[in-house]
Amino acid sequence: MMLGVASGKGGTGKTTVAVNLARAFGSGVWLADCDVEEPNAHLFLRGTTIGSRTVSLPVPQVEAGLCDACGACARLCQYHAIVSFGTPPLLFPELCHGCGGCVRVCPRGAIAEVDRRIGVVETQRDGHITLVQGRLDVGVALVPPLVRAVKASLPRDMPVIVDAPPGTSCPVIATIRGLDALALVTEPTPFGLHDLSLAVDMVRQLNIPFGVVVNRVGVGDDRVHGFCRREGIPILLDIPDDRRIAEVCSRGRLVVDELPEYRPAFARLWAGACALAAPVPALAPL
């Protein structure tokens, strides 16, 4: 079971939900921080690093002696990472998405691929939680390949919680594609509802079972709950607007450790998500 924790709006409490859900487990669980531009789940854990590996993209390198400047590579590249007009190509590796198309279309075999480092995937262990996080190098703009590298490090036979980046763009799609279920975290405000509805549209297109976690219930209004009722979206968890939760989080501690009365709620969240992913099958006719 792989559960994603996502949201349209940033700052709604994805990481709070993800790390507390992981801690509430009584046995081994994996937590993946796919917000590789600013991973922060590690701030709430006291883990030791047990692994780190660099992630690279294959980018073109041109052998000038073989190139006859035909320009086939440049015509193929939609990202303008390789440019040619009657001269050996100019390369812009920072724009290359690593598709390898230029290598294939070159009729003279003049293009080879070299690795361009984009970031690291790190593994930490804190008790029963194994954290895998991506960390994008400063100055790199291409997020999805590193997200996919994080996901490739995850086991298939263990419970996995995936903390997604905010929003509805490519990094989020790369994160949630293929997950078994999603918890969309929102806050009960007009802004929260607006961005939740964007996230709902995205998730429905990807056909992933999902429910909603409403964080800080009590700060706004009841429009998020009304929206979920009308749309037939299950509310997996309501987290009240409890000042003590904010204090615990701001100290980098975990809610389920410091305020144990919240522990059962996170256990219910996991059970509810599992029910979404594998609905009880209808009885087959005898």
Partner: peptide, 16 residues
């Protein structure tokens, strides 16, 4: 419209 590489793309257009 380009998310990235607008200058390169424009320069290619001009060159062609």
């Amino acid at each position: 419209r380009a998310a990235q590489g607008a200058g390169i793309q424009a320069a290619e257009t001009i060159a062609r």
